[in-house]
């Protein structure tokens, strides 16, 4: 089936007596002409990559720009010291930071839906997986649920900062994560939709304004707000709270807001935080260090070429 409306996926699930995630799985099988096992395996690879990225994170790495690194570790240590939002929430925050940093530090991540927003989904899935001793099977179901939501958003609106601002990246990731959480806690199809609607509503209008054009500031910490918002939206939906505006309409509205965002707030690094005095200073620093590095590299490479020596400059 075409993954172009939440309502239709839910209707299909009801009609066929299946769950939301099964409809997504079957759509993938049909689309790519693969077996159920192959589709599940591919999703398992994504899940394992997320878990591994979390396990190998130490907080020691720094990004090429020097802007990021180590914050996930700080938050992780703080989680044991009676954090305000409780230990679980602190773990969610720590995981979101760790994953965003891993991306910035050129480690392996799963774009979900984008590399910039790669921390949102694992930030809610991994702590819950450990706390509640969930089965891997369940996690894959949750990830298919999330992918279906992302596919609808990509179809009806957009999922890139350049097209629709950060609401399209972190907002979409947050809606995907909220849906995954509702599924993991045994929520209904209609609760999934309400969670999606609420998560996306809460982040509507968010600008994409990366400092120096790099996926670091504010991106890494935006993964935190995406994750925490997902937990809140899922809890609200599970509590029986409904979104007054249906999910598909919220998604359409997000797309519309995205189109109206000025170019300066869509990944061009010309507005918002990128245009603050500090943001601009970072950009200038990067430009001058780049020049130094570039000149050295070229000279080095030329010299080595002439000398016919192996190139090993850094």
């Amino acid at each position: 089936m075409n993954l172009d409306s939440m309502q239709e996926i839910v209707a299909a699930a009801r009609r066929e007596g299946k769950r939301f995630w099964e409809i997504i799985l079957e759509t993938d099988m049909e689309n790519r002409g693969v077996s159920r096992g192959e589709s599940l395996d591919k999703m398992a690879k994504n899940w394992h990559t997320m878990k591994e990225a979390s396990e190998v994170y130490t907080g020691e790495r720094r990004s090429l720009s020097g802007l990021s690194g180590g914050q996930g570790k700080l938050m992780h240590d703080y989680a044991a010291k009676a954090p305000i939002g409780g230990e679980f929430m602190a773990q969610v925050i720590a995981e979101a930071l760790a994953m965003g940093e891993s991306n910035a530090c050129m480690r392996r991540v799963v774009a979900a839906p984008t590399a910039g927003a790669c921390g949102v989904l694992p930030a809610v899935l991994i702590p819950l997986y450990w706390r509640e001793n969930l089965l891997e099977e369940k996690m894959l179901e949750a990830m298919f649920t999330a992918s279906g939501v992302g596919a609808v958003i990509a179809y009806r609106a957009c999922i890139s900062g350049a097209a629709g601002g950060c609401q399209a990246e972190i907002g979409s990731a947050s809606a995907m994560a909220a849906a995954a959480l509702v599924h993991l806690r045994g929520g209904t199809e209609s609760q999934i939709c309400h969670a999606v609607a609420m998560a996306l509503k809460n982040l509507m209008g968010l600008a994409c304004d990366p400092v120096a054009g790099l996926v670091e500031v504010p991106c890494i910490k935006r993964n935190v707000v995406g994750a925490v918002n997902a937990v809140a939206a899922a809890d609200m939906a599970l509590a029986g709270i409904e979104s007054r505006i249906p999910a598909d309409e919220v998604i359409d509205a997000m797309g519309e807001v995205g189109r109206r965002l000025p170019m300066e707030l869509r990944e061009t690094a010309l507005g918002g935080l990128a245009a603050t005095p500090t943001g601009r200073a970072v950009k200038e620093r990067m430009a001058s260090s780049k020049k130094k590095q570039r000149v050295l590299t070229i000279k080095d490479a030329r010299w080595r070429l002439e000398k016919r020596e192996p190139q090993g400059s850094k």
């Binding site: 075409n2 993954l3 997504i24 759509t27 993938d28 689309n31 790519r32 591919k42 999703m43 690879k45 994504n46 990559t49 990004s63 891993s102 991306n103 910035a104 530090c105 050129m106 480690r107 392996r108 991540v109 799963v110 774009a111 979900a112 839906p113 984008t114 590399a115 910039g116 790669c118 990830m143 298919f144 999330a146 992918s147 279906g148 992302g150 596919a151 990509a154 179809y155 999922i159 995907m176 790099l214 996926v215 670091e216």
Partner: peptide
């Protein structure tokens, strides 16, 4: 038709799908 694994994935080394992957 959107591929589900374009949404969940790709698995990649960061930081940017356009500038790195």
């Amino acid at each position: 038709m959107i591929d589900v694994f374009d949404i969940m994935g790709p698995i990649m080394v960061g930081p940017s799908s356009s500038h790195t992957a």
